[in-house]
Design a protein around this nucleic acid. Sequence first.
DNA 1: CTGAAAGCGCTTACAG
DNA 2: CTGAAAGCGCTTACAG
Lengths: 343, 343
Amino acid sequence: MKNSRTTLKDLAKELNLSASTISRALGNHPGISESTTKLVQKKAEELGFIPNSIASSFRKKKTQSIGIIVPRIDIYFHSLVISGIEDYAYKMGYNVTIFQSKDSMKREQEITKILQNKMVEGVIVCLSIETDKYDHFKKFKKLGIPLVFYDRVPSEIDVNSIVINDYESAFTATKHLIEKGCKRIAHIAGNQSTAIFKARYEGYKAALKKHKLTLDANLVGLTHNLSYEEGVIQANKFLKLPVLPDGIFCANDYTAVSVLQVFMKAGVKIPEETAIVGFSNYPISRVIEPHITTINDRAFEMGTEAAKLSIRLIEDEEESIKSETISLNTELIVRESSMKTTV
Amino acid sequence: MKNSRTTLKDLAKELNLSASTISRALGNHPGISESTTKLVQKKAEELGFIPNSIASSFRKKKTQSIGIIVPRIDIYFHSLVISGIEDYAYKMGYNVTIFQSKDSMKREQEITKILQNKMVEGVIVCLSIETDKYDHFKKFKKLGIPLVFYDRVPSEIDVNSIVINDYESAFTATKHLIEKGCKRIAHIAGNQSTAIFKARYEGYKAALKKHKLTLDANLVGLTHNLSYEEGVIQANKFLKLPVLPDGIFCANDYTAVSVLQVFMKAGVKIPEETAIVGFSNYPISRVIEPHITTINDRAFEMGTEAAKLSIRLIEDEEESIKSETISLNTELIVRESSMKTTV
DNA sequence: CTGAAAGCGCTTACAG
DNA sequence: CTGAAAGCGCTTACAG
């Protein structure tokens, strides 16, 4: 399409000034007289001058943009994180370019290539579920482009990452059930090859141990991806036990919802007979009845922190070598699904 | 941060060829011998050459990028649309830069300025709820940057837009209730200054009229933003009526959920005494019990179509003057909340 | 099939 | 306080 943009030169010619002066005046450079600056800015406004920031980026080798790679945008958790990133980045004058890996390592690898030559200044990533090799991220280090991971982070140590304290959160959630008088506490666990779900399982086990409750293998339901459907399957398994669990800690809210519905349909009273705690604070947890006690996973703040760290690393002159892991503290949100009167 | 990228020139020097040849060989230009092309590409790989696409964009005046302005990323509908846009854009070699207006016209105006000098090649927008002036979009036309609106579109005619057939969808939803034997059908309506909600209200009215049912003002609940809470308020109003509505068509799924919950708590049988239909096919509609009959608003496809149209307009040589409105057909998804046996 | 040269629109070190 | 000049890393019309 035709391009009839006014350029610096046009402005210069119009005002009988040099391009250098125009450039400086527009940038409010101190070494330009106030009158000239005023004049230039007025004229720029008048001619509808829009600086070509591609030229500027090219010249300055600064694009003021951050690349994001997420598995999918339409997963609520990620949409919240992205929202947090955009919000902070916008305030700092950065913009964000988004790519979806669709949980494919191959696509993730393609995207890293694109990001390398697109000259983003920083990259924020949540790994695809398939990713078990990290070579495609190494190039960023060589190029001096800081990488920040969140949620699903590489199982290596020297990366910048934003996570939540999954272990402690799971511990807290389980302890809450214990304090409510539960003795037979079940757990619906996520994929144990994913660090965060492993940590949640560990936190659950630790809380039981601490309170001298024995771990019963029948009360642990391992799932592949914590889907609603898998939750239904696990719930039905629990229902067939000779003695029902009196508390269930689910590693996410989807499975918490399915357990809640399956149990209620089977006539089990929630929370009196079985108390339920989820994880993530998805919107549905405060809509479904009874409302579900859950862990606020602070997705938005995760995004804010990721953006903050990324921009700090971008603007940091002395390339700080050491990697940083920021662990956010979650909070337990107590709702009806676990509100039974303590014994 | 330090930048030690290999450039075209480095490659040229290394191979004793000109930069022109290197550039062409990398681009698989036909006028270069196969052997040279092979040689250059091998060397490029070897030296880890990454083309500087900012330089290339600058030179070619093509950034292969699309800007998106949405009210919020963390609204499920928008996250789906964005996902659809990214998906199609990615396939076509475009990337997407996202901004949130946060439903502020002021911020939307700021963003349009940024997008104008960022040299995106196309812009896709869902207007902020506040927006009642469109001057900030005019500049795009002058710059030859095609604009595509979706969902909330300007109340002017000459814009490209992707919408769904709200009127027909509402008509279908209401007709469905009528066919199920409902005689007193209520409607929870959205903000009537927003075109889509107005169209849904009109569709509801038209269906009543067509089937000779009278419109009862007591059965219409106007809300400001169709929030869950507003749904609760309207539901309680309906409960106080001497005769309950036997069908309710809600302009979105949030209010459908709240009506369903309030009515059930009041002992009303769903769908036997009151059937409910929502709008949007939010995930919660197929989780809450009874599952809610709703309209699939095809958000993902809306994104795909927006991207498709945007890219077509970008790549179209002969700046097609006429604007296009693409209206997607929705579908009614019948679930338990309206499945009562017909009389 | 390959190369020399110009130039995209800015910014900035250098000079005055 | 202002200007001339060089250059960022590519691409492409022109020439051979």
